[in-house]
Design a binder for these strands. Structure first.
Lengths: 219, 219
DNA sequence: TAGATTGTTAATCGATTAACAATC
DNA sequence: TAGATTGTTAATCGATTAACAATC
Protein backbone atom coordinates (compact mmCIF):
# COMPACT_ATOMS: atom_id res chain seq x y z
CA UNK A 1 0.00 0.00 0.00
CA UNK A 2 1.50 3.35 -0.83
CA UNK A 3 2.41 5.97 1.71
CA UNK A 4 1.14 9.15 0.15
CA UNK A 5 -2.29 8.22 1.46
CA UNK A 6 -2.18 9.33 5.04
CA UNK A 7 -4.41 6.48 6.08
CA UNK A 8 -6.05 7.42 9.30
CA UNK A 9 -7.24 3.85 9.76
CA UNK A 10 -4.44 1.37 10.07
CA UNK A 11 -4.46 -2.14 8.75
CA UNK A 12 -5.25 -3.73 12.10
CA UNK A 13 -8.21 -1.48 12.75
CA UNK A 14 -9.48 -2.15 9.25
CA UNK A 15 -9.31 -5.88 9.82
CA UNK A 16 -11.00 -5.71 13.21
CA UNK A 17 -13.78 -3.56 11.80
CA UNK A 18 -14.30 -6.05 9.00
CA UNK A 19 -14.52 -8.99 11.39
CA UNK A 20 -16.92 -7.08 13.56
CA UNK A 21 -19.03 -6.21 10.52
CA UNK A 22 -19.27 -9.84 9.49
CA UNK A 23 -20.07 -11.02 12.96
CA UNK A 24 -22.85 -8.49 13.47
CA UNK A 25 -24.28 -9.09 10.01
CA UNK A 26 -24.36 -12.84 10.49
CA UNK A 27 -25.97 -12.60 13.91
CA UNK A 28 -28.34 -9.68 13.57
CA UNK A 29 -31.22 -11.75 14.92
CA UNK A 30 -29.57 -12.53 18.24
CA UNK A 31 -29.47 -8.91 19.41
CA UNK A 32 -33.01 -8.56 20.72
CA UNK A 33 -32.35 -5.15 22.17
CA UNK A 34 -30.72 -4.00 18.96
CA UNK A 35 -27.63 -3.02 20.89
CA UNK A 36 -24.29 -4.60 21.64
CA UNK A 37 -21.57 -3.79 24.16
CA UNK A 38 -17.87 -3.39 23.51
CA UNK A 39 -17.27 -6.26 25.96
CA UNK A 40 -19.32 -8.62 23.84
CA UNK A 41 -17.57 -7.70 20.61
CA UNK A 42 -14.14 -7.78 22.23
CA UNK A 43 -14.82 -11.35 23.29
CA UNK A 44 -15.79 -12.42 19.80
CA UNK A 45 -12.86 -10.70 18.11
CA UNK A 46 -10.52 -11.88 20.82
CA UNK A 47 -9.33 -8.38 21.56
CA UNK A 48 -9.58 -5.77 24.31
CA UNK A 49 -12.79 -3.89 24.95
CA UNK A 50 -11.02 -0.52 24.87
CA UNK A 51 -9.69 -1.47 21.48
CA UNK A 52 -13.23 -1.94 20.24
CA UNK A 53 -14.34 1.40 21.64
CA UNK A 54 -11.32 3.07 20.13
CA UNK A 55 -11.94 1.51 16.72
CA UNK A 56 -15.56 2.62 16.86
CA UNK A 57 -14.62 6.13 17.91
CA UNK A 58 -12.19 6.30 14.98
CA UNK A 59 -15.02 5.87 12.49
CA UNK A 60 -17.41 8.07 14.38
CA UNK A 61 -19.62 5.52 16.10
CA UNK A 62 -20.93 6.72 19.47
CA UNK A 63 -22.50 4.52 22.08
CA UNK A 64 -24.46 5.09 25.26
CA UNK A 65 -23.22 4.29 28.72
CA UNK A 66 -25.17 1.36 30.22
CA UNK A 67 -26.71 0.57 26.86
CA UNK A 68 -23.95 -0.03 24.36
CA UNK A 69 -23.90 0.53 20.62
CA UNK A 70 -26.83 0.28 18.24
CA UNK A 71 -26.05 -2.72 16.05
CA UNK A 72 -27.54 -1.28 12.89
CA UNK A 73 -25.62 1.95 13.30
CA UNK A 74 -22.39 0.06 13.79
CA UNK A 75 -22.97 -2.03 10.67
CA UNK A 76 -23.83 1.02 8.61
CA UNK A 77 -20.86 3.00 9.87
CA UNK A 78 -18.42 0.20 9.11
CA UNK A 79 -19.87 -0.27 5.64
CA UNK A 80 -19.38 3.38 5.03
CA UNK A 81 -15.89 3.56 6.53
CA UNK A 82 -14.64 0.65 4.45
CA UNK A 83 -16.22 2.09 1.34
CA UNK A 84 -18.52 -0.88 0.83
CA UNK A 85 -21.40 1.46 0.12
CA UNK A 86 -19.64 2.85 -2.93
CA UNK A 87 -19.92 1.09 -6.23
CA UNK A 88 -16.56 0.09 -7.69
CA UNK A 89 -16.06 -1.48 -11.08
CA UNK A 90 -13.24 -3.92 -11.56
CA UNK A 91 -11.70 -5.91 -14.38
CA UNK A 92 -10.02 -9.28 -13.93
CA UNK A 93 -7.00 -9.99 -16.11
CA UNK A 94 -6.10 -13.64 -16.53
CA UNK A 95 -8.87 -16.18 -17.04
CA UNK A 96 -7.07 -19.05 -15.38
CA UNK A 97 -8.44 -20.95 -12.41
CA UNK A 98 -7.76 -18.17 -9.96
CA UNK A 99 -9.11 -15.46 -12.26
CA UNK A 100 -12.18 -17.61 -12.77
CA UNK A 101 -12.60 -18.16 -9.05
CA UNK A 102 -12.45 -14.43 -8.37
CA UNK A 103 -14.78 -13.57 -11.24
CA UNK A 104 -17.29 -16.07 -9.93
CA UNK A 105 -17.07 -15.09 -6.28
CA UNK A 106 -20.42 -13.72 -5.24
CA UNK A 107 -19.26 -12.27 -1.95
CA UNK A 108 -17.82 -9.21 -3.65
CA UNK A 109 -21.08 -7.75 -4.93
CA UNK A 110 -22.42 -7.08 -1.44
CA UNK A 111 -19.24 -5.13 -0.81
CA UNK A 112 -19.90 -2.86 -3.75
CA UNK A 113 -17.48 -4.51 -6.16
CA UNK A 114 -18.75 -5.23 -9.61
CA UNK A 115 -16.60 -7.18 -12.01
CA UNK A 116 -17.32 -5.83 -15.45
CA UNK A 117 -14.94 -7.89 -17.58
CA UNK A 118 -12.56 -10.82 -17.65
CA UNK A 119 -9.56 -10.79 -20.01
CA UNK A 120 -7.08 -13.29 -21.35
CA UNK A 121 -4.40 -13.42 -24.04
CA UNK A 122 -5.08 -17.03 -24.97
CA UNK A 123 -7.19 -16.98 -28.20
CA UNK A 124 -8.71 -20.32 -27.28
CA UNK A 125 -10.25 -18.86 -24.16
CA UNK A 126 -11.75 -15.80 -25.81
CA UNK A 127 -15.51 -16.06 -25.93
CA UNK A 128 -15.76 -18.79 -23.29
CA UNK A 129 -17.89 -18.09 -20.26
CA UNK A 130 -15.78 -18.42 -17.12
CA UNK A 131 -17.08 -17.52 -13.71
CA UNK A 132 -20.12 -15.93 -15.29
CA UNK A 133 -18.15 -13.66 -17.59
CA UNK A 134 -17.34 -13.88 -21.28
CA UNK A 135 -13.57 -13.91 -21.69
CA UNK A 136 -12.46 -10.92 -23.73
CA UNK A 137 -9.27 -10.37 -25.70
CA UNK A 138 -6.65 -8.31 -23.90
CA UNK A 139 -6.76 -5.76 -26.72
CA UNK A 140 -10.07 -4.56 -25.34
CA UNK A 141 -8.57 -3.72 -21.94
CA UNK A 142 -8.20 0.03 -22.36
CA UNK A 143 -11.54 0.45 -24.11
CA UNK A 144 -13.44 -1.32 -21.37
CA UNK A 145 -11.63 0.42 -18.55
CA UNK A 146 -12.60 3.73 -20.07
CA UNK A 147 -16.16 2.73 -20.87
CA UNK A 148 -16.97 1.46 -17.39
CA UNK A 149 -14.84 3.93 -15.44
CA UNK A 150 -12.98 1.00 -13.93
CA UNK A 151 -10.84 1.96 -10.95
CA UNK A 152 -9.60 -1.45 -9.84
CA UNK A 153 -7.82 -4.19 -11.78
CA UNK A 154 -7.37 -7.72 -10.46
CA UNK A 155 -4.22 -9.31 -11.80
CA UNK A 156 -4.06 -13.11 -11.98
CA UNK A 157 -1.59 -13.58 -14.84
CA UNK A 158 1.72 -15.48 -14.72
CA UNK A 159 4.59 -13.61 -13.07
CA UNK A 160 6.40 -12.90 -16.33
CA UNK A 161 3.41 -11.08 -17.82
CA UNK A 162 2.44 -9.07 -14.76
CA UNK A 163 4.66 -6.02 -15.17
CA UNK A 164 3.72 -5.56 -18.82
CA UNK A 165 0.05 -5.54 -17.94
CA UNK A 166 0.64 -3.26 -14.97
CA UNK A 167 2.26 -0.77 -17.36
CA UNK A 168 -0.78 -0.83 -19.58
CA UNK A 169 -3.06 -0.40 -16.58
CA UNK A 170 -1.06 2.62 -15.48
CA UNK A 171 -1.43 4.23 -18.88
CA UNK A 172 -5.14 3.46 -18.78
CA UNK A 173 -5.35 5.46 -15.54
CA UNK A 174 -6.32 2.63 -13.25
CA UNK A 175 -6.31 3.60 -9.58
CA UNK A 176 -5.63 0.32 -7.85
CA UNK A 177 -4.20 -3.09 -8.64
CA UNK A 178 -5.03 -6.22 -6.68
CA UNK A 179 -2.04 -8.33 -7.55
CA UNK A 180 -2.29 -12.12 -7.30
CA UNK A 181 0.74 -12.70 -9.52
CA UNK A 182 3.67 -13.93 -7.47
CA UNK A 183 5.87 -10.99 -8.38
CA UNK A 184 6.69 -7.45 -7.35
CA UNK A 185 5.17 -4.69 -9.48
CA UNK A 186 6.92 -1.42 -10.25
CA UNK A 187 4.27 1.25 -10.29
CA UNK A 188 4.26 4.94 -9.39
CA UNK A 189 3.20 5.89 -5.89
CA UNK A 190 -0.18 7.23 -6.90
CA UNK A 191 -1.41 3.76 -7.77
CA UNK A 192 -2.58 1.59 -4.90
CA UNK A 193 -1.14 -1.90 -5.06
CA UNK A 194 -2.32 -4.71 -2.83
CA UNK A 195 -0.23 -7.85 -3.17
CA UNK A 196 -1.93 -11.10 -2.35
CA UNK A 197 0.80 -13.69 -1.92
CA UNK A 198 -0.35 -17.22 -1.28
CA UNK A 199 3.18 -18.18 -0.51
CA UNK A 200 3.28 -15.94 2.58
CA UNK A 201 0.45 -17.94 4.09
CA UNK A 202 2.27 -21.14 3.27
CA UNK A 203 5.48 -19.82 4.83
CA UNK A 204 3.65 -19.09 8.07
CA UNK A 205 2.07 -22.52 8.15
CA UNK A 206 5.28 -24.24 7.22
CA UNK A 207 7.12 -22.44 9.99
CA UNK A 208 4.50 -23.29 12.57
CA UNK A 209 4.36 -26.93 11.50
CA UNK A 210 8.11 -27.13 11.80
CA UNK A 211 8.08 -25.56 15.25
CA UNK A 212 5.30 -27.88 16.35
CA UNK A 213 7.31 -30.81 15.10
CA UNK A 214 10.44 -29.77 16.96
CA UNK A 215 8.47 -29.02 20.06
CA UNK A 216 7.01 -32.53 20.02
CA UNK A 217 10.35 -34.14 19.31
CA UNK A 218 11.86 -32.39 22.33
CA UNK A 219 9.72 -34.24 24.82
CA UNK B 1 -2.49 -19.00 14.61
CA UNK B 2 -2.63 -20.50 18.03
CA UNK B 3 -0.81 -19.19 21.04
CA UNK B 4 0.57 -22.28 22.66
CA UNK B 5 3.37 -22.17 20.13
CA UNK B 6 5.75 -19.67 21.60
CA UNK B 7 6.73 -18.46 18.16
CA UNK B 8 10.13 -16.94 18.38
CA UNK B 9 9.78 -15.51 14.91
CA UNK B 10 6.97 -13.06 14.58
CA UNK B 11 4.80 -12.62 11.55
CA UNK B 12 6.63 -9.55 10.29
CA UNK B 13 10.03 -11.20 10.51
CA UNK B 14 8.65 -14.26 8.72
CA UNK B 15 7.36 -12.11 5.89
CA UNK B 16 10.58 -10.13 5.54
CA UNK B 17 12.62 -13.33 5.48
CA UNK B 18 10.39 -14.72 2.78
CA UNK B 19 10.71 -11.62 0.62
CA UNK B 20 14.46 -11.67 1.10
CA UNK B 21 14.55 -15.34 0.15
CA UNK B 22 12.68 -14.71 -3.07
CA UNK B 23 14.77 -11.73 -3.97
CA UNK B 24 18.06 -13.54 -3.45
CA UNK B 25 16.87 -16.67 -5.25
CA UNK B 26 15.69 -14.69 -8.25
CA UNK B 27 18.89 -12.68 -8.49
CA UNK B 28 21.57 -15.18 -7.54
CA UNK B 29 23.57 -14.36 -10.68
CA UNK B 30 23.98 -10.68 -9.87
CA UNK B 31 26.02 -11.26 -6.73
CA UNK B 32 29.47 -11.77 -8.29
CA UNK B 33 31.18 -11.81 -4.93
CA UNK B 34 28.64 -14.22 -3.53
CA UNK B 35 27.93 -11.83 -0.69
CA UNK B 36 25.32 -9.21 0.04
CA UNK B 37 25.14 -6.42 2.62
CA UNK B 38 22.29 -5.60 4.96
CA UNK B 39 22.13 -2.16 3.34
CA UNK B 40 21.43 -3.70 -0.04
CA UNK B 41 18.70 -5.97 1.24
CA UNK B 42 17.15 -3.24 3.35
CA UNK B 43 16.80 -1.11 0.23
CA UNK B 44 15.07 -3.88 -1.69
CA UNK B 45 12.71 -4.79 1.14
CA UNK B 46 12.10 -1.16 1.91
CA UNK B 47 13.07 -1.57 5.53
CA UNK B 48 15.86 -0.57 7.89
CA UNK B 49 19.29 -2.17 7.67
CA UNK B 50 19.35 -2.97 11.40
CA UNK B 51 16.08 -4.74 10.89
CA UNK B 52 17.70 -6.99 8.30
CA UNK B 53 20.65 -7.76 10.56
CA UNK B 54 18.28 -8.44 13.43
CA UNK B 55 16.17 -10.79 11.34
CA UNK B 56 19.27 -12.61 10.20
CA UNK B 57 20.60 -12.91 13.73
CA UNK B 58 17.28 -14.36 14.82
CA UNK B 59 17.70 -17.33 12.51
CA UNK B 60 21.40 -17.73 13.19
CA UNK B 61 22.92 -16.13 10.11
CA UNK B 62 26.27 -14.45 10.83
CA UNK B 63 27.99 -12.01 8.50
CA UNK B 64 31.44 -10.49 8.30
CA UNK B 65 32.20 -6.82 8.84
CA UNK B 66 33.29 -5.17 5.57
CA UNK B 67 32.12 -8.19 3.59
CA UNK B 68 28.49 -8.81 4.33
CA UNK B 69 26.54 -12.06 4.26
CA UNK B 70 27.17 -15.08 2.06
CA UNK B 71 24.16 -15.25 -0.23
CA UNK B 72 23.98 -19.01 -0.38
CA UNK B 73 24.15 -19.31 3.39
CA UNK B 74 21.37 -16.77 3.77
CA UNK B 75 19.17 -18.63 1.31
CA UNK B 76 19.82 -21.95 2.98
CA UNK B 77 19.21 -20.57 6.45
CA UNK B 78 15.91 -18.99 5.48
CA UNK B 79 14.77 -22.18 3.75
CA UNK B 80 15.55 -24.04 6.91
CA UNK B 81 14.00 -21.50 9.27
CA UNK B 82 10.73 -21.41 7.33
CA UNK B 83 10.67 -25.17 7.14
CA UNK B 84 10.83 -25.25 3.34
CA UNK B 85 13.41 -28.01 3.48
CA UNK B 86 10.95 -30.34 5.18
CA UNK B 87 8.52 -32.35 3.13
CA UNK B 88 4.91 -31.75 4.03
CA UNK B 89 1.99 -33.60 2.55
CA UNK B 90 -1.29 -31.81 2.11
CA UNK B 91 -4.80 -32.59 0.97
CA UNK B 92 -7.11 -30.11 -0.71
CA UNK B 93 -10.80 -30.34 0.11
CA UNK B 94 -13.16 -28.75 -2.39
CA UNK B 95 -12.47 -29.19 -6.09
CA UNK B 96 -13.96 -25.88 -7.15
CA UNK B 97 -12.04 -23.22 -9.02
CA UNK B 98 -10.02 -22.17 -6.02
CA UNK B 99 -9.27 -25.72 -4.95
CA UNK B 100 -8.23 -26.46 -8.51
CA UNK B 101 -6.01 -23.39 -8.66
CA UNK B 102 -4.25 -24.38 -5.46
CA UNK B 103 -3.88 -28.02 -6.53
CA UNK B 104 -2.34 -26.89 -9.79
CA UNK B 105 -0.01 -24.27 -8.34
CA UNK B 106 3.53 -25.38 -8.99
CA UNK B 107 5.18 -22.88 -6.68
CA UNK B 108 4.37 -24.99 -3.63
CA UNK B 109 6.55 -27.97 -4.49
CA UNK B 110 9.78 -25.99 -4.22
CA UNK B 111 8.67 -25.03 -0.73
CA UNK B 112 8.37 -28.66 0.28
CA UNK B 113 4.61 -28.91 0.02
CA UNK B 114 3.24 -31.89 -1.82
CA UNK B 115 -0.46 -32.12 -2.50
CA UNK B 116 -1.37 -35.77 -2.32
CA UNK B 117 -5.09 -35.63 -2.94
CA UNK B 118 -8.02 -33.48 -3.96
CA UNK B 119 -11.50 -34.18 -2.57
CA UNK B 120 -15.04 -33.20 -3.36
CA UNK B 121 -18.55 -34.22 -2.34
CA UNK B 122 -20.06 -33.71 -5.77
CA UNK B 123 -20.38 -37.18 -7.40
CA UNK B 124 -20.11 -35.59 -10.85
CA UNK B 125 -16.62 -34.35 -10.08
CA UNK B 126 -15.27 -37.59 -8.69
CA UNK B 127 -12.75 -39.07 -11.09
CA UNK B 128 -12.16 -35.88 -13.05
CA UNK B 129 -8.62 -34.60 -13.26
CA UNK B 130 -8.47 -31.08 -11.87
CA UNK B 131 -5.23 -29.22 -11.39
CA UNK B 132 -3.31 -32.42 -12.09
CA UNK B 133 -5.14 -34.45 -9.46
CA UNK B 134 -7.92 -37.00 -9.69
CA UNK B 135 -10.85 -35.82 -7.63
CA UNK B 136 -11.61 -38.30 -4.88
CA UNK B 137 -14.79 -38.84 -2.88
CA UNK B 138 -14.81 -37.22 0.52
CA UNK B 139 -15.33 -40.64 2.12
CA UNK B 140 -11.68 -41.38 1.38
CA UNK B 141 -10.48 -38.39 3.43
CA UNK B 142 -9.48 -40.19 6.61
CA UNK B 143 -7.91 -43.12 4.80
CA UNK B 144 -5.69 -40.93 2.66
CA UNK B 145 -4.68 -38.66 5.53
CA UNK B 146 -3.53 -41.71 7.43
CA UNK B 147 -1.85 -43.37 4.47
CA UNK B 148 0.22 -40.33 3.49
CA UNK B 149 0.80 -38.96 6.99
CA UNK B 150 -0.85 -35.74 5.91
CA UNK B 151 -0.29 -32.88 8.33
CA UNK B 152 -1.92 -30.01 6.43
CA UNK B 153 -5.40 -29.68 4.96
CA UNK B 154 -6.40 -26.92 2.56
CA UNK B 155 -10.05 -26.03 2.87
CA UNK B 156 -11.82 -24.49 -0.13
CA UNK B 157 -15.37 -25.58 0.48
CA UNK B 158 -18.44 -23.34 0.85
CA UNK B 159 -18.79 -21.66 4.23
CA UNK B 160 -21.68 -23.85 5.36
CA UNK B 161 -19.65 -27.05 4.92
CA UNK B 162 -16.40 -25.84 6.44
CA UNK B 163 -17.01 -26.59 10.11
CA UNK B 164 -18.23 -30.12 9.41
CA UNK B 165 -15.08 -30.89 7.45
CA UNK B 166 -12.91 -29.25 10.08
CA UNK B 167 -14.43 -31.58 12.66
CA UNK B 168 -13.53 -34.59 10.54
CA UNK B 169 -10.03 -33.27 10.03
CA UNK B 170 -9.62 -32.87 13.77
CA UNK B 171 -10.64 -36.45 14.36
CA UNK B 172 -8.23 -37.56 11.65
CA UNK B 173 -5.44 -35.87 13.62
CA UNK B 174 -4.58 -33.21 11.11
CA UNK B 175 -2.10 -30.66 12.44
CA UNK B 176 -2.89 -27.56 10.42
CA UNK B 177 -5.75 -26.15 8.37
CA UNK B 178 -5.30 -23.55 5.66
CA UNK B 179 -8.79 -22.14 5.53
CA UNK B 180 -9.97 -20.41 2.37
CA UNK B 181 -13.64 -20.74 3.30
CA UNK B 182 -15.07 -17.37 4.29
CA UNK B 183 -15.97 -18.48 7.78
CA UNK B 184 -14.57 -18.86 11.25
CA UNK B 185 -13.58 -22.38 12.31
CA UNK B 186 -13.96 -23.68 15.83
CA UNK B 187 -11.01 -25.94 16.49
CA UNK B 188 -9.00 -26.81 19.58
CA UNK B 189 -5.84 -24.83 20.26
CA UNK B 190 -3.49 -27.61 19.27
CA UNK B 191 -4.50 -27.28 15.62
CA UNK B 192 -2.89 -24.50 13.62
CA UNK B 193 -5.40 -22.54 11.59
CA UNK B 194 -4.41 -20.00 8.99
CA UNK B 195 -7.37 -18.08 7.62
CA UNK B 196 -7.01 -16.70 4.13
CA UNK B 197 -9.74 -14.14 3.68
CA UNK B 198 -9.97 -12.57 0.27
CA UNK B 199 -12.44 -10.11 1.62
CA UNK B 200 -9.84 -8.54 3.92
CA UNK B 201 -7.76 -7.58 0.91
CA UNK B 202 -10.83 -6.14 -0.75
CA UNK B 203 -11.68 -4.17 2.38
CA UNK B 204 -8.23 -2.58 2.39
CA UNK B 205 -8.44 -1.69 -1.28
CA UNK B 206 -11.96 -0.42 -0.96
CA UNK B 207 -10.97 1.79 1.96
CA UNK B 208 -7.96 3.19 0.14
CA UNK B 209 -9.93 3.83 -3.03
CA UNK B 210 -12.52 5.67 -1.01
CA UNK B 211 -9.89 7.78 0.74
CA UNK B 212 -8.22 8.53 -2.58
CA UNK B 213 -11.55 9.60 -3.94
CA UNK B 214 -12.29 11.92 -1.05
CA UNK B 215 -8.80 13.29 -1.16
CA UNK B 216 -9.20 14.18 -4.85
CA UNK B 217 -12.65 15.64 -4.31
CA UNK B 218 -11.27 17.96 -1.64
CA UNK B 219 -9.03 19.89 -4.02
C1' DT C 1 46.45 0.60 8.73
C1' DA C 2 41.85 2.79 7.54
C1' DG C 3 37.39 2.43 6.96
C1' DA C 4 33.19 -0.29 5.74
C1' DT C 5 29.98 -3.22 7.69
C1' DT C 6 28.60 -6.20 11.29
C1' DG C 7 26.19 -7.33 15.96
C1' DT C 8 23.98 -5.40 19.70
C1' DT C 9 22.33 -2.09 22.91
C1' DA C 10 19.63 2.08 23.57
C1' DA C 11 16.05 5.34 21.87
C1' DT C 12 11.93 5.96 19.44
C1' DC C 13 7.68 5.06 17.73
C1' DG C 14 3.15 3.13 17.40
C1' DA C 15 -0.29 0.01 18.87
C1' DT C 16 -2.51 -2.36 22.71
C1' DT C 17 -4.16 -2.50 27.33
C1' DA C 18 -5.42 -0.46 31.79
C1' DA C 19 -7.68 2.87 34.44
C1' DC C 20 -11.19 5.89 35.59
C1' DA C 21 -14.13 9.98 35.42
C1' DA C 22 -18.33 11.04 32.86
C1' DT C 23 -23.00 9.68 32.08
C1' DC C 24 -27.20 7.44 31.06
C1' DT D 1 -30.28 6.87 42.94
C1' DA D 2 -26.88 3.09 41.87
C1' DG D 3 -24.18 0.95 38.92
C1' DA D 4 -23.02 -0.59 34.15
C1' DT D 5 -20.81 0.95 30.21
C1' DT D 6 -18.96 4.55 27.54
C1' DG D 7 -15.03 7.82 25.89
C1' DT D 8 -10.55 9.15 26.70
C1' DT D 9 -6.22 9.70 28.91
C1' DA D 10 -2.22 7.34 30.82
C1' DA D 11 0.70 3.14 31.16
C1' DT D 12 2.50 -0.76 28.97
C1' DC D 13 4.19 -3.50 25.55
C1' DG D 14 6.46 -4.78 21.35
C1' DA D 15 8.48 -3.67 17.07
C1' DT D 16 11.29 -0.48 14.44
C1' DT D 17 15.07 2.65 13.99
C1' DA D 18 19.34 4.88 15.55
C1' DA D 19 23.82 4.67 17.32
C1' DC D 20 28.19 2.90 17.95
C1' DA D 21 31.88 -0.19 19.53
C1' DA D 22 33.85 -4.42 17.60
C1' DT D 23 36.17 -6.36 13.70
C1' DC D 24 37.66 -7.96 9.38
Amino acid sequence: MNKRNRTSLNRQTLERLLLCYHYLNNNLHQFDTGTVSSVHIAEILNTDESQVRKDFTSIGIRGRPRVGFVVKEVVRAIRHALGFDEKNSAVVIGAGRLGGAISAYEGFVAQGLKIVALFDVNPEKIGLVIGGHIVQPLEQLEVIIKKHHVRLAVLTVPAHAAQMIADRLMKADIQAIWNFSPTHLNVPGNIIVKNERLIVGLAELSYHLKTLHEWRAHR
